[in-house]
Design a binder for these strands. Structure first.
Lengths: 155, 155
DNA sequence: TATTGTTATACTCTATAACTATA
DNA sequence: TATAGTTATAGAGTATAACAATA
């Protein structure tokens, strides 16, 4: 009558989901004092590598729909972190640029990522951390996940 | 000018989040043909271990608010999977019981978990899978995650 | 007075379609 | 005819408060 199956915590899939959601919420919480959300961070980080992209290009790189990009850029523009400028060759498109305030904020957000990493890996020994990272990277790659694209970050 | 920080995929926190959301979406997709969502599965699984609990008790075990439990039990009752009966000692409470159809469905859902596990771990060698599982379990425990409680499963 | 289940409400996030101005 | 950005709308999911029945 009872369905005797393995407990959920014996499944890698369950543990990965559990840890993933916990980490995502934790990241959102740690980012809250900076008054941005994970998706804003992803966008600022991307722009930090290469300014002046169109909203379409940013959306493709982050796997965010162009409709959603509008509000995202609106948010960051209202906070004085980015600026829409005229695209040099395509008058339909906007080129998005970081403003000075964004660089300072980005540095603080990067520090948050570092501290979250430290917190997450605290239960493991130094050599285990390296092993864990390697296994995570290969599992992510093997499951078709593209580097830097984080599905469905809410909250 | 450029913020030269490590790429996101060098961070365990990012990878865990990326893999976690991917796995959660994948689980929801694999469960869709059974016409239930992850949260329904969690609830059926819990009831499979121990029938007749109140909605309050179920909510506490799954970390789901009692307001949300109402709709959840409504869903499962409408599908003929569970039944609300009078609680033997507390006339305010409902005792929730699995119906026969639920056992068959639960077995199929357990098989989905198994196949997802296999899929997720496919990129790793057999001994690496064991290591990965161990590291995941210790990381989850060390970060205060309670076994079987999956935060915020949407979709 | 507190608790169980319930309902109502508001807020966020998501997905789709449609509009405008350009190409 | 297609594309970049925008706007509007409807659908989930979540969080909060309040209510009736019962403890």
């Amino acid at each position: 009558m009872t369905d005797a199956a393995a407990p959920l915590s014996a499944h890698a899939a369950f543990l990965v989901g559990q840890l993933g959601f916990h980490t995502a919420y934790r990241f959102a919480d740690l980012l809250a004092p900076l008054d941005i959300k994970p998706r804003h961070f992803g966008m600022l980080k991307l722009l930090g590598q290469h300014d002046g992209r169109t909203q379409q290009e940013l959306g493709e790189a982050l796997d965010i729909h162009r409709n959603v990009m509008v509000t995202l850029v609106d948010d960051l523009e209202a906070r004085g972190l980015v600026e829409r400028r005229r695209h040099p060759t395509d008058r339909r498109a906007h080129a998005v640029y970081l403003l000075p305030a964004a660089h300072a904020l980005l540095a603080r957000a990067e520090a948050v990522v570092e501290s979250l990493d430290t917190e997450l890996l605290a239960p493991l020994a130094a050599e285990e951390r390296a092993t864990f990272l390697d296994l995570l990277q290969r599992t992510a790659a093997g499951n078709g996940l593209r580097p830097g694209i984080h599905p469905g970050l809410t909250r």
